Amino acid sequence: MKHPSHIKVGISIGDMNGVGIELILKTFEDARVLEFCTPIVFASNKTISFQKKHFNSPTSFNGIDKISQAIEGKLNVLNCWKETPNTEFGKPTVESGKFALLSFKAAVEALKSEEIDVLITAPINKQNIQTDEFKFPGHTDYLAKELQGESLMFMVSDSLRIGLLTDHVPVKDVSRHITEKRITQKVNSIHDSLIRDFRIGRPKIAMLGINPHSGDNGVIGEEDDKVMKPTIEKLFSQGKMVFGPYSADSFFATEAYTKFDAVVAAYHDQGLIPFKTLSFGQGVNFTAGLNRVRTSPDHGTAYDIAGKGIADHSSFQKALYEAIAIYRNRNEYEQLSQKPLKKLSHKI
């Protein structure tokens, strides 16, 4: 396993008209953060310099033209373009979408080729990043295509972990996406991630019902009785500690979530509303189930405060620490799995 300071952290800048670069600069103002990793920002010297000057940031950086030139103990900026893009804080433009995509794709390629160990993605705008070569509702779906494994949107904080059965799916289409196959695949991904990435020996997982009151025995929809319950019972019979479905409207208010290692929500807002209410600013979006580690802050581009110098970098910093911790946990788990302790032989 690599020494912590040798872990190369790739960072995509997101939409430069949002708060992404501000978060990066603020995170690395504290030089002690550099003791944990070697950060590499996929952008350009000019792009970072412009915002460094705008925010009067004391953060220094080292410009490089290839990743092998990265220096430990420094914030490194990999020059991915020669142009000088026009920054318009608070406005999603075609240009800011173009460079957000350039940064993200370059970082993903480096992740795939193992030139970086983990990836932190600053927030993008899901509309202006769309092109003929990028037709995805977000980072997660693109990563699922480019990397190995089955991706899972896993929101994590110190007190709560929420996985989603469906993520960027219209509410009207949610129920038809929730099948025995999908439930099984997502629960297995969460179960494996809790063991590999968070080092939890025997995870306990709670499932939230699809309908209000989990369908009230078929009075408010049949999906919970016909799909959710039988699948949960099947998973439990296979040795996984999976329970539910629980009525989502009271599950968090009664703090029932504290009794579980993870909660599985049926759809995006069912999981994200309680997560952001309980953990906003301290939460992390982790793409579990893939062969590489990627995290991001739990918020968007924040155009309303972009350029004002008031963005809170707590979630971005948490995403950085979480990625490093997951990477180390995963490495340790894989090493232990590949090299089981030899039985001691005793002479009689």
Rank of each mutant, 00 (worst) to 15 (best):
Ser189Lys: 09
Leu75Ser: 01
Lys98Leu: 14
Ile190Asp: 06
Thr131Glu: 02
Lys339Gly: 04
Arg294Trp: 07
Leu34Asn: 01
Thr287Met: 12
Ile273Pro: 09
Ala31Lys: 15
Glu88Pro: 05
Gly244Phe: 00
Gly309Glu: 04
Ser5Thr: 13
Glu233Ile: 09
Val174His: 03
Arg328Trp: 02
Trp81Ala: 01
Leu34Trp: 03
Val33Met: 15
Thr295Gly: 14
Ser214Tyr: 04
Gly63Pro: 15
His299Tyr: 13
Lys2Cys: 09
Leu341His: 08
Gly201Arg: 12
Leu147Val: 05
Val9Glu: 07
Ile200Thr: 00
Phe316Trp: 08
Thr47Ser: 11
Ser247Asp: 10
Glu334Met: 03
Leu290Ala: 14
Met1Leu: 07
Glu35Ser: 07
Gly218Asn: 10
Phe42Thr: 13
Thr59His: 08
Thr131His: 04
Gly300Glu: 07
Asn62Thr: 02
Phe134Val: 02
Val174Met: 10
Pro123Ser: 02
Thr184Met: 06
Asp167Tyr: 11
Lys342Val: 10
Phe134Gly: 01
Lys229Pro: 05
Ala253Asp: 11
Lys347Leu: 15
Lys126Asp: 04
Ile273Met: 11
Thr231Val: 06
Pro170Phe: 00
Met207Ala: 05
Pro170Asp: 12
Phe243Val: 08
His6Met: 09
Ala288Phe: 11
Lys229Met: 03
Ser337Glu: 15
Ile190Met: 14
Ala248Gln: 13
Cys80Lys: 12
Lys339Tyr: 15
Ser44Pro: 12
Pro4Lys: 14
Arg294Thr: 10
Asp269Asn: 14
Ile210Phe: 15
Arg176Gln: 12
Val77Ile: 14
Ile162Tyr: 01
Cys37Val: 04
Phe61Glu: 10
Ser314Arg: 14
Ile71Ser: 05
Thr287Pro: 12
Lys259Leu: 13
Asn291Leu: 08
Ala110Cys: 06
Thr287Arg: 10
Val264Ala: 00
Ile129His: 06
Gly283Tyr: 08
Leu278Cys: 06
Ala262Leu: 10
Tyr303Val: 09
Asp30Ile: 00
His213Cys: 00
His6Gln: 15
Asn331Arg: 13
His346Thr: 08
Phe243Met: 03
Arg292Ser: 12
Lys226Cys: 01
Tyr327Thr: 00
Arg196Ala: 08
Ala262Asn: 13
Gly73Ile: 13
Phe280Pro: 08
Asp224Phe: 03
Lys46Arg: 10
His139Arg: 13
Asp30Trp: 06
Gln69Tyr: 02
Asn128Leu: 01
Ser247Thr: 10
Gly97Thr: 03
Ala311Cys: 03
Leu78Ala: 00
Asp216Phe: 01
Ala262Arg: 11
Gly218Phe: 13
Ile13Ala: 00
Gly18Ala: 12
Thr295Lys: 15
Thr87Pro: 14
Met207Cys: 07
Ile116Gly: 00
Arg176Pro: 03
Lys98Glu: 14
Ile195Gly: 04
Ile273Gly: 05
Ile13Trp: 03
Phe198Arg: 09
Gly149Trp: 06
Thr121Cys: 00
His177Gly: 06
Gly215Gln: 07
Gly138Glu: 11
Phe28Tyr: 11
Pro340Cys: 02
Phe36Trp: 06
His313Lys: 11
Leu194Trp: 05
Ile124Pro: 09
Ala43Glu: 08
Lys74Thr: 03
His6Thr: 10
Thr301Ala: 11
Gly20Lys: 14
Phe42Pro: 12
Leu278Pro: 08
Leu341Phe: 11
Asn217Trp: 06
Lys186Ser: 04
Ile120Glu: 03
Ile40Lys: 01
